[in-house]
Design a protein around this nucleic acid. Sequence first.
RNA 1: GCGAAAGUGGCGGAAUGGGAGACGCGCGAGACUUAGGAUCUCGUGGCUUCGGCCGUGGGGGUUCGAGUCCCCCCUUUCGCACCA
Length: 828
Amino acid sequence: MDNEDPKDYSPSAVERKWQQRWEERGTNRFTREQLRRAEAPFYNLMMFPYPSAEGLHVGNIYAFTGADVHGRFRRLRGEQVFEPIGFDAFGIHSENFALKQGVHPMDLIPANIKNFTRQLKRIGGMFDWAHAADTTDPAYYRWTQWIFIQLFKAGLAERKEAPVNWCPSCKTVLANEQVIAGACERCETPVEQRRIAQWFFRITDFAQRLLDNLEWLDWSETTRTAQQNWIGRSEGAELRFPLQPRGGERVPRSAEAGRDWDIIRVFTTRPDTVFGATYMVLAPEHPLVDELTMPEHRAAVDEYRDRSVAKDLVARKIETKEKTGVFTGACCINPATDEPIPVWIADYVLLEYGTGAIMAVPGHDQRDFDFAFAFGLPIRRVVAGPEEGPDTPLAEAWEGPGTLVHSGKFDGLHVLEGKRRIVDWLAMHGLAEWRINYRLHDWCISRQRYWGPPIPIVHCEQCGAVPVPEDQLPVVLPRVENFKPDDTGVSPLARDESWHRTSCPSCGGEARRETDVSDTFLDSSWYFLRYPSTDFDDRPFDPEITAKWLPVDTYIGGNEHAVLHLMYSRFLNMVLHDLGHLSFEEPFTKFRAHGLITREGAKMSKSKGNVIVPDPIIEENGADTFRLYLMFIGPFEEGGDYRDEGIQGPYGFLHRLWNSVVFREDGAATDPEVERKLHRTIEQVTEQLAELQYNTAIAALMEYLNAVRAGGRKAARGEVEPLIVMIAPFCPHVAEELWEQLGHAESIFEGANWPTWDEAKARSDWVPIAVQVNGKLRGTVTADRGAPREAVEELARSDENVARYLDGAEVRRVVYVPERLVNFVVSS
RNA sequence: GCGAAAGUGGCGGAAUGGGAGACGCGCGAGACUUAGGAUCUCGUGGCUUCGGCCGUGGGGGUUCGAGUCCCCCCUUUCGCACCA
């Protein structure tokens, strides 16, 4: 359809024009000087995308638009808003896609980035393209490697052999977080367990601080809760169970307490129940299992252990909760009762949590109860709940509170009191210690893959692991044509001898480069520090500019990153703070998680074929309309349901707005009713945009335009001008165009001021008063604002319908809410 | 199982303890047009004997008044999931 008439609204022409102007005029770009000098800096961050071959997903656009609206709003209110964007382009996802398509990632990624850039420009984001970052650029990952070295030097990066999750399909190690219900999060292949030497960051050292800071961070509640759960602090005690010597003679309590090698340590949150510990269980992979297994039990133990390691995280976590296990033949001494109790291995005990061993209290832990029941182990009651006696039989574990029984001198104590006394008592004999345990694990950053930054370490026979000198960074990822991983457990880089053969930076001897690359989450855990400093090539982030712009003012992103990316970023920031590189501990002052967009009530997925492809929709309706619709669907922090016809609303609204401006009456007086509405609208929209409540803000703007045009009247200039400014965060292109049509030469984002409201002008002289009888609405009257109570009551009584209800009834009470309602309480 | 959030018209969704359903979609009637996914006007929760009555997942409670607060139950979504 041709749109020859300039009076007609043609989104594509308007948007092309303004995108070009922004680019030419550098409307959204900061120079280094501007970054240094900004007086009211506002760092508006959104989670950078992974540049897939499919292009921008509607979820990306939703998130970016929501963030962009906020940034543009802040800018219109006079702040200097830095709104960068970049690409999180390393990682398994790209690598797998490249393998599938037979393209090299080094060719694939630039093409994807090009396409993403085009799309991002098309939706009209206020991005500073001069400060874009790409994690696969050596100029970027040079500093990712530098960060690794800082952690290494601080003793926070360590190499250790550890059981890891191994995906047999992706042929790589996965972080615990990448294992979903025992399967690989990418390909859903069941995960196996392997032992490989890996690099770990000691994030667990920071568990308590990471937890404590959550108290004051201004973050979405859901995200904070998710992080708390992930850190998983639990308070309890470590108890020590001496092994019984093979001969079977008793060991007197505390005699062996100091000796580590024949003690089994357990973590428990219920030390009060230690008198009920009738057996012990070790995780099958527990290092003591070999030592303590008796010869006649060896075959059974070995078989059980092999089986559980093979099926590991699969069967152990999803297949069944049926309890299995075998007896090792060994016994240890219950430190409370002095009795020998058998030591079993069972896969319901996890090596990764606590000490990898438990004391089993079948009377008061349902899992232990199930196990004891299955294997005929003794079940002893040591807690009596209300209305229970010391010998009330147990049909299932009693996990609630109560009084200690069968617990020697502690009988009769409440469990909480008993807990304290028992731990203190055992501690005197060196058999217990208060302990706080966290669910959080150290962060494994090694990946036996190709598409990532090489870990900047050189292995030397003489010197061990030596970091690459900082002036030799980056360690460039070579172009390797055969980058397909295999199941040898080493990275494809290990095949390129000319690359990994090197000399030791320390002694100069023959050495070999680390051939693993690092986790993508490392790339993305510091990118926000890089953005303002992308034009510095001699430092990761400039101290002056960083001090001015960080921490990030508002961070917007998806809650799928609530525990991974957001935890790692916090951790890294904290480390850099402790090492003196940053002045702040927390990188994101304010974080808001946006919701998810579904389509016609269903989740979008490629397999269902109901994915929204943004390009044609933008082509047809314009980016402004699309943006407006996305923000109108529902509360930004909750998401909403995308219905294809729904875009008609915003589409029509913008046409109506256009016509209202183009066919306005410049001389017309402003209608007082409209003016009141305007001031109320400014107030509401201003407050709601600050809180990211976009859907209701848009509704208010629509309502206002309806009032302006009510009955088909023409708009006055003063009525639409503020409306254009208020719609500009959502629809920047059409706002610019209409702003220009009103005779302004500057960009609306540079020349316009956010409208202000006047309380007095927002009020009318009269107010509608709801009149209730016994709480039910029976009429509405109009009263003068500030009229005395008696007058309003009298007015209410005189309402015809109300009078009918009051007739013949006794008014016992009148509730009066000024300027709102009158409620007559009557008895019939 | 644990944790979090949420249940309101045909649909998406609004409502500081005070007029339930704003705004929009869809639908109905009409206007202007050579034409139009344009635009404009009016209507649109259910029932009704046209007086009203009933309505926010179900059941109790607090209150003059409850979608909103409290207790119990049901359902859905999301996260974690043998965490000792």
